[in-house]
């Protein structure tokens, strides 16, 4: 049996995307963790919302996108999932994250 070149190509694309996304998640987690530690050590609400904002801006959309990609490897999803639901969920998370960042900038430092 010869392997189907289309399938091989698909999983190569998926694996590279997965590894880059995992690197991005790792970097984002590191920065979010530093902000969270700043909040714990200094009891700074601004750092709490910075951490939350960065989390919603980076990690959540990454996880959504990799989740949908992984699901597409296993089963066929409705086209609307990747054309509408995924971008919509990511954008909503980013709006929430930007809101947190804005709030963090606007509140007074304690």
């Amino acid at each position: 049996m010869t392997p189907n070149p289309a399938v091989a190509r698909l999983s190569f694309d998926y694996l590279t995307l997965l590894s880059v996304t995992l690197i991005a998640i790792g970097l984002a987690l590191f920065i979010v963790f530093q902000a969270y530690r700043g909040y714990r050590h200094h009891e700074s609400r601004r750092m709490l919302f910075l951490a939350l904002g960065l989390f919603l801006l980076t990690i959540v959309p990454f996880v959504f996108s990799i989740g949908v990609d992984s699901a597409e490897q296993l089963t066929t999803l409705e086209p609307r999932v990747s054309s509408y639901y995924l971008p919509m969920a990511s954008r909503l998370s980013e709006v929430g994250g930007l809101g947190c960042l804005l709030y963090s900038l606007l509140i007074d430092a304690e």
Binding site: Q34, A35, R37, G38, Y39, H41, H42, S44, R46, M47, L50, S104
Partner: peptide, 8 residues
């Protein structure tokens, strides 16, 4: 994290 807090 302290420097990050100071900066922010």
């Amino acid at each position: 994290s302290d420097r990050f807090t100071d900066m922010w």
